[in-house]
């Protein structure tokens, strides 16, 4: 099951050139670009692993691509996303976020129904990937 989180997730995977163009756009807006990765794709997992700090002092997409490639090398087969953080007063939050790398085989999610008293049903989703311990998931 294809994970759809963030921008462009219903499009085919972005090529490196397209990623570069998106980053160039973010940098031209004055946003700081960051790279994060995870092997726990649950939509409520907001704590992806940061690849270094957000790149506040990089002016060009070529510099960010160096970091992205280093992150890809170190996190083969995991989810990797690129974020753009706007530090402008009033925003001070992430303005862009898109997945650039994903595992070859995505395991998807299980829908768990738990019955409570009075036929009440609680729903929860659980990633099949997290059956295994961190590091052995993909």
């Amino acid at each position: 099951m294809r994970l759809t989180q963030g921008q462009f997730s219903f499009l085919p995977d972005l090529t490196d050139d397209e990623i570069k163009q998106q980053i160039t756009y973010a940098l031209n807006q004055g946003w700081a670009v960051a790279v994060e990765s995870t092997d726990d794709p649950h939509p409520r997992n907001i704590y992806w692993d940061m690849w270094g700090t957000p790149m506040f002092d990089i002016a060009d997409a070529a510099g960010v691509m160096m970091e992205i490639n280093a992150c890809r090398k170190a996190n083969k087969g995991k989810y990797i996303k690129v974020l753009a953080f706007d530090s402008q007063k009033g925003f001070e939050s992430v303005r862009m976020s898109f997945i650039i790398d994903r595992p070859a085989e995505e395991k998807g999610f299980e829908l768990i129904r738990s019955e409570g008293p009075g036929r009440k049903v609680d729903y929860t989703i659980r990633s099949y990937a997290t059956e295994k311990p961190a590091g052995a998931r993909y």
Binding site: D57, I58, A59, D60, A61, A62, G63, V64, M66
Partner: peptide, 11 residues
């Protein structure tokens, strides 16, 4: 060195 190079990229 890589840090300096990344900063300079594009220029």
């Amino acid at each position: 060195t890589k840090e300096a190079l990344k900063k300079a990229m594009g220029g």
